[in-house]
């Protein structure tokens, strides 16, 4: 039964122009605590742009985003304190070791007792023996796992994930999904972009399909199956 959950992120009539082209025309979305929203759409539909706007890296041309009832334009720090992100790029300094990278970002976030948390996260992601190695030598799978370790250390409330599964092997995908399930249980909110719909279908609570710069989310009801989703997606 759908129960009323606390609203975390509200996106209202969001639009964005890149150059002369309007990439986002009107995005409305509603993300609640403990929910994972699956964001689908063709390449170039504007999914990654939406992520960047939510994270505050890019300012929207119009519309409003509120995080826990507060306009993120007026109070960006509030969102940044609770934000975790995985994107196409590794987002780590290649010349620093895995541990130094995590320590640097946890210092900026003022994580309490960071060293123990980093130790634990590296252990859980199986990167402990690589802790003292420069990140530039990491494979893409290891980079993704290091990103997951970063999320564990930072302990965010809102996750923005842009293709987090690419480069992960089967075990790691399993591990990451377990992490997401646990994260949801704790009341975390997730927005997930992926082309690997089959892996994430189980986890998701809401579905949003983006097309021509417009997107709106709807609930995944109990009767809604994976085939329904594929059908809905292909109809667009």
């Amino acid at each position: 039964m759908p129960q009323t959950k606390t609203q975390v992120l509200k996106i209202d009539k969001l639009s964005k122009d890149f150059g002369y082209r309007q990439v986002l025309k009107g995005v409305d979305m509603d993300l609640a605590a403990g929910e994972l929203t699956l964001l689908l759409g063709k390449n170039g539909a504007g999914k990654s742009t939406l992520m960047k706007i939510i994270s505050g890296l890019v300012l929207p041309s119009g519309g409003k985003i509120s995080f826990k009832g507060q306009d993120t334009k007026k109070n960006p720090q509030n969102l940044r304190k609770s934000l975790g992100m995985i994107s196409h790029q590794t987002m780590f300094y290649g010349d620093l070791t895995a541990e130094e990278n995590l320590l640097f970002f946890s210092k900026l976030k003022k994580v309490s007792s960071p060293r123990e948390k980093i130790e634990g996260a590296l252990h859980r992601t199986g990167l402990r023996k690589f802790a003292q190695i420069p990140v530039k030598t990491f494979s893409s799978g290891m980079n993704k796992r290091l990103n997951i370790a970063k999320l564990m250390v930072m302990d965010p409330e809102l996750l923005l994930l842009d293709e987090p599964y690419t480069g992960l092997d089967y075990d790691s995908i399993e591990f990451f999904n377990d992490y997401l399930a646990e994260f949801k249980k704790k009341g975390g909110t997730v927005l997930l972009i992926t082309h690997q719909i089959d892996i994430s279908f189980e986890l998701c609570d809401k579905i949003a399909i983006m097309q021509n710069g417009v997107a709106a989310s709807h609930m995944k009801t109990a009767s809604y199956t994976y085939d329904d989703l594929i059908e809905e997606y292909q109809k667009r």
Partner: peptide
């Protein structure tokens, strides 16, 4: 000129 460029860029396209 900007208005015109925007109109061209946002013409409905056949994907």
């Amino acid at each position: 000129s900007r208005k015109f460029q925007k109109q061209i860029a946002n013409l409905p396209q056949d994907h």
